[in-house]
Design a protein around this nucleic acid. Structure first.
Length: 561
RNA sequence: UGGGGCGUCGACAAGCGGUAAGUCACAUGGUUUUGGUCCAUGUAUUCGAGGGUUCGAAUCCUUCCGCCCCAGCCA
């Protein structure tokens, strides 16, 4: 690879946010500085939609040698928890982004934010409201009709200062007053109709304790926090587009640094939901086993499922960044995982639904250690050995009576290859009294050791297998999409929950090398998919594997026809 | 129907006046000790619709249609 190619590799794909930054850097706009931020509220776990924002912001900061602050937007103590802060830090780092020298918190600016509020009051640009929440709503007007001004709008500055200080000192009960900006009750942009700046909330804050009885609203805190941190580009999602005039108003009234806000479309993924509210509902109503359930689109869920940081970053690179509402096909995410794992995951053999096979002409107590390659896509991966003996198991799906010609697997009288072992031919099918197939009697060809024949004989099928006396028992969880409908914009999303989103197979048999398998290391179970040890439930001697994603299966497609 | 956005292949998405990139999905062939991977090929005479400007328009103008967001003391 030459230098040019390498350069291109390090550059992310073009998108309009990146283009704006390129221009600004070129024009020396913020002295050429690029300071970004990722500002989650610690009120839930991060999901893959947040990962888009993380990759964008941290990625751009890295590319332009700038910085990206992780800032917790902790302005609502009633909804935020320490647990979420820890999980968020953890998720960002797992994705591969450093947290930097310090973590930022909006709550660190409470003092500063309060003096900004006081500044507005003193300038006659903000006032203390006596109206109730309901009255405020009525006064606000509607989308089509202008609002009307509050009777308390023109209090004296002195009275406003006095009242605000009393609010701050805890002299009033929750809801008694609120501080509002004095802008324009007739504005077509509802955000400008005297928005609330502070509310009284005598709640314990996870960081500031009981110091405050008033807390700033998001709209009053967010832009100013960006400003305080010297953020050059405030990248956020589309729904904040019409808040921008409000943020600009604050910045202008206060006379402080003006970050440039840029809005992009949030990520939607087919067959899942992506709002914290809905995800919380799935957790609380026990549709899943927690925020990190492997079926959840949370970062912790994807991680437990077996997704890698590289696959998620690759996905983000491929979907791009734009302003059109869109829903990305989950197949693309799966493709990214397969691509990563195809190159990197060691291959092993595991029989999920075992069918007993006796090799009638194989010596009774013989065991052979056969060599098997670990990864045909990676020469450096080396080889291992697998024990072979008289009784083995194959996949139930790999045998069929009266099989069609296109079925390249085992059937009466047909010969197949056991991967890395021998050619075997099925001679007899043993059934129980119900007619279920319980065992196959096969014969092997000793001349085909390793799975080769030099007589030019063609064998179409290759099966995976495990030796009975050496096999490890394990539980395998096959995950499928959580919902049966690709897009659930309308109606109740819970109607579309997939009742078969997980299938638990209890009696799977694995090759012995898997006894040392560890969580977050992916394996390809040959011919089936990529699997990893479950980080929570798997125990030594009681292994549990999760299917991260299946292999593509063109036979399944063909069989359906 | 107040304001703010958005409409390019089934799904994403480049393109920004010079004659429709790429990726996924799909289909067909080839290779293959994974019906995996890999390789090759195919897939929008057309850019929400109409009208206009221009030698030339997805790109400019205009009218219309459709979708999303906003009336929390949530973020």
């Amino acid at each position: 690879m030459n230098n040019n190619n390498q350069e291109e590799q390090n550059l992310s794909k073009a998108n309009f946010v990146r283009n704006i930054i390129i221009d600004d850097v070129k024009n020396n706009k913020h002295n050429g500085k690029v300071v970004l931020r990722f500002p989650p509220e610690p009120n839930g776990y991060l999901h893959i939609g947040h990962a888009k924002s993380i990759c964008l912001n941290f990625g751009l900061a890295k590319e332009f040698h700038g910085s990206c602050n992780l800032r917790f937007d902790d302005t609502n103590p009633t909804k935020e928890e320490e647990e979420y802060i820890e999980s968020i830090k953890n998720d960002v780092q797992w994705l591969g982004f450093g947290l930097g020298e310090k973590i930022f918190y909006t709550s660190d600016y409470f003092e500063q934010l309060y003096s900004f509020a006081l500044q507005l009051v003193k300038a006659g640009k903000a006032y203390v409201e006596d109206l109730t929440a309901e009255e405020i709503r009525e006064y606000r007007g509607t989308l089509k009709e202008p609002g009307k001004e509050s009777p308390y709008r023109n209090r004296s500055i002195e009275e406003n200062i006095d009242l605000l200080e009393k609010m701050k000192n805890g002299d009033f009960e929750d809801g008694k007053h609120v501080l509002r900006a004095k802008i324009d009750m007739a504005s077509p942009n509802i955000n400008l109709r005297d928005p609330v700046l502070y509310r009284i909330q005598k709640a314990h804050h996870h960081r500031t304790g009981d110091r405050w009885s008033i807390y700033p609203m998001y709209d009053f805190a967010h832009g100013q926090s960006d400003s305080i941190e010297g953020i050059t580009h405030s990248v956020c999602t589309l729904e904040f587009e019409d808040h921008r005039p409000l943020y600009d108003w604050f910045i202008e009234q206060l006379g402080i640094h003006h970050p440039q806000q840029i809005e992009f479309a949030r990520l939607n993924l087919s067959y899942t939901v992506m709002s914290k509210r809905k995800l919380l509902q799935l957790v609380e109503e026990k549709y899943v086993e927690g925020w990190d359930d492997p079926r959840m689109p949370t970062i912790s869920g994807l991680r437990r499922r077996g997704f890698t940081p590289a696959s998620i970053k690759d996905f983000m690179e491929r979907i791009g960044v734009a302003k059109a509402d869109s829903s990305v096909d989950v197949a693309l995410l799966e493709h990214c995982l397969r691509e990563d794992l195809n190159k990197n995951a060691p291959r092993v053999m595991a029989v999920l639904r075992p069918l007993r096979v006796v090799i009638t002409n194989y010596p009774e107590n013989q065991v052979e250690e056969l060599e098997a390659e670990n990864n045909p896509e990676d020469e450096t991966a080396g080889t291992r050995t697998m024990p072979f003996s008289k009784v083995i198991y194959i996949e139930q799906d790999d045998f069929m009576e009266d099989a069609p010609k296109k079925f390249f697997r085992l059937s009466q009288g047909r010969e197949v290859r056991l991967k890395h072992a021998y050619y075997v031919t099925c001679n007899e099918v043993i059934k129980n009294e119900n007619g279920d197939i319980i065992e196959l009697q096969c014969s092997y060809d000793p001349a085909t050791k390793g799975g080769w024949s030099d007589d030019g004989r063609k064998v179409k099928g290759t099966l995976h297998w495990v030796s009975e006396q050496h096999a490890l028992k394990a539980t395998v969880r096959l995950y499928d999409r959580l919902f049966t409908k690709a897009n659930m914009n309308k109606g109740d999303f819970k109607e579309f929950i997939n009742p078969d989103s997980v299938e638990v197979l209890e009696n799977c048999l694995l090759e012995p090398s898997l006894s040392t398998a560890k969580a977050e290391i992916n394996y390809q179970f040959l011919r089936q998919g990529y699997f990893c040890v479950d980080s929570k439930d798997s125990k030594e001697g009681a292994l549990i594997f999760n299917r991260s994603v299946s292999l593509k299966d063109s036979w399944a497609n063909q069989a359906k026809k």
